[in-house]
Design a protein around this nucleic acid. Structure first.
Length: 279
DNA sequence: CTTAACGCCTGAAGGC
DNA sequence: TGCCTTCAGGCGTTAA
């Protein structure tokens, strides 16, 4: 579930806690998150590596070391990084730990993941540009314009909801923020992407950006169990208007009841009054 | 080229 | 109470 605001929250947490730290050991409790390397080679790869920076690209987390090495993680549904300054792990903290990074100051970074969808991939720094080019523009950057969005949508007949979930179109949106942004933009989630007007595209971009910014300010959304590296919850769940609100009266128009439909195996939430289909 | 479906996973929740 | 089924959903892969 972590989307751009949650990943940004985690990256900010990691910047505060692990920059400058040196890895002296790695414990791999489950090899499945490691996608391009064996547990043994992963340990060797990270031996004595000192963290130089932590960056977010779309929903990806890059931990870059002072050598030319780097690891890229994706949290998918239930992945999390937890910074643990102590040494004695309590039972709750121990749950679902897949990889433990041991730093020279005896603190730990835990990679936890209940469902093991999350990934860790090793890279040399030079290969990163190529990886970044595989995903679309950052929604909070200047390149994310109505013209860009319409160009991407030109030959796309699928629903605008599904179109916006495509990470090659725009990087970092997931189910929650697409539903919320479409609601604020008053766009029906079922209209075809190539039917978007310039006016709609402009509003959509503004709403995507304002929703993401507000969510980042609130340290993300903690539905299910998202947590920052210090185990604190986000608060944007208190500001959701449609996501998981089916059956409730729309808080904006006070007329529509929030509906839940399936689009490509995923739930979409919207207000049929605010987001009425234009003819 | 685009689009749709499936598999990966586990624990919570719902049905009977 | 307890067992079985369903659901959550990002993304890579495969097929159409």
């Amino acid at each position: 579930m972590p989307e751009l605001p949650e990943v940004e929250t985690v990256v900010r947490g990691l910047k505060k806690t692990i920059i400058g730290k040196k890895i002296i050991n790695v414990t791999v409790l489950d090899h499945r998150p490691l996608k391009n390397i064996t547990a043994q080679k992963f340990k060797k790869f990270l031996q004595d590596q000192q963290v130089e920076s932590v960056e977010r690209f779309g929903k990806y987390i890059h931990i870059i070391f002072k050598s030319n090495k780097c690891i890229v993680s994706h949290l998918r549904m239930t992945g999390k990084y937890v910074y643990f300054p102590g040494t004695k792990l309590d039972e709750e903290t121990k749950k679902h730990i897949r990889v433990i990074f041991h730093f020279s100051d005896k603190t730990l970074l835990l990679f936890k993941d209940l469902r093991i969808f999350g990934t860790i991939v090793t890279y040399d720094k030079d290969c990163l540009i190529e990886e970044k080019n595989k995903i679309g523009v950052e929604p909070l950057s200047k390149e994310f314009t109505a013209e860009h969005l319409l160009e991407q949508a030109k030959n796309r007949k699928l629903a605008v909801k599904q179109f916006l979930l495509d990470q090659k179109v725009v990087a970092g949106l997931g189910n929650i923020y697409v539903c919320e942004a479409l609601f604020h933009a008053k766009i029906n989630p079922e209209i075809a992407a190539n039917k978007l007007t310039l006016e709609q595209a402009n509003i959509l971009i503004k709403k995507i950006q304002s929703v993401l910014k507000l969510a980042i300010k609130n340290n993300g959304t903690s539905v299910s169990d998202f947590r920052n590296v210090d185990d604190k919850s986000g608060t944007f769940q208190n500001m959701l208007k449609v996501y998981q609100k089916e059956g409730q009266l729309c808080s904006i128009c006070k007329k529509g009841t929030i509906l839940r439909i399936k689009q490509g195996q995923r739930s979409t939430f919207y207000c049929p009054v605010c987001q009425i289909k234009q003819i």
